[in-house]
């Protein structure tokens, strides 16, 4: 199979040579794939704007001998117009892309992750709900099999009142074992609802006092799992004022 077709979200692009670009894609059936879009930077290119980061496309690629496939055809599925015109949402959408780019493995099919990313971007495009990024990070960790323990204290397992949260321990801690950072009951409840099937309800809520806390906790967990800082999140913090 030299030529193949797939659905894909463009994660990142790099310039290559005079007029080409390397495009990093997360596909439905082929995992993370890097392809070369020949001549895409020329004004007369047939790909044009379709291969910019954030685009959801159907794509045809040619699998050659090397690491990079050659992109032969692209059609747009979603353009996510509001993500492009609002700097704040743009930064948040890039945070999703960065997280997926870090988690996904080359040519390791993960249709569920692809669907999650598309849904995440669609939600962000349509609603601008405050907790989309945090919820996406938590669901992504769940998908990776590293969901934090939120029910009982991770250290002693007793059903004592929860007061702290530590990404290194991998969950919440009671008063006797507390470590890491304090957690409020509202934030804990929100985390439980996101991972326990109450996602739609959480996303429908307006900004509250614990929204920032949930955001920070989700980012801490994500960065702990990736073992690196997320650059888009750092930029996001300076955009909000």
């Amino acid at each position: 199979m030299a030529l193949y077709r797939d659905h894909a979200v463009v994660l990142r692009t790099w310039k290559l040579g005079e007029a080409d670009r390397i495009v990093s894609l997360h596909t439905h059936d082929h995992g993370k794939v890097r392809g070369v879009a020949k001549g895409v930077r020329r004004t007369k290119s047939k790909f044009g704007a379709r291969l910019e980061p954030l685009s959801h496309v159907t794509i045809q690629l040619y699998r050659g001998k090397g690491d990079l496939d050659t992109i032969t055809q692209v059609e747009t599925v979603d353009r996510f117009v509001s993500l492009r015109s609002d700097p704040d949402r743009f930064a948040r959408a890039q945070a999703l892309l960065e997280a997926v780019d870090q988690v996904a493995q080359d040519r390791e099919p993960d249709p569920e992750l692809h669907v999650m990313l598309v849904r995440g971007l669609r939600t962000l495009d349509q609603s601008d709900a405050p907790l989309v990024v945090a919820a996406f990070f938590l669901k992504l960790l769940d998908h990776e099999g590293v969901m934090p323990e939120l029910e009982a204290c991770v250290s002693c397992g007793e059903d004592n009142p929860i007061v702290a949260f530590d990404p290194i321990e991998g969950g919440v801690l009671c008063r006797d074992c507390r470590r890491g950072r304090p957690i409020t009951p509202e934030a804990l409840e929100t985390l439980r609802r996101i991972l326990g099937g109450g996602l739609a309800g959480v996303l429908a809520e307006p900004v509250a006092s614990h929204t920032g806390e949930v955001d920070i906790l989700a980012t801490l967990l994500m960065e702990h799992h990736l073992e690196r800082r997320l650059r888009a999140v750092a930029v996001l913090d300076q955009t909000q004022y």
């Binding site: 743009f90 890039q94 780019d101 650059r231 930029v235 300076q238 955009t239």
Partner: peptide, 11 residues
Amino acid sequence: AFSPIDGVGVE
């Protein structure tokens, strides 16, 4: 240019 994924923000 504004590109959060590369760490380029307003500052």
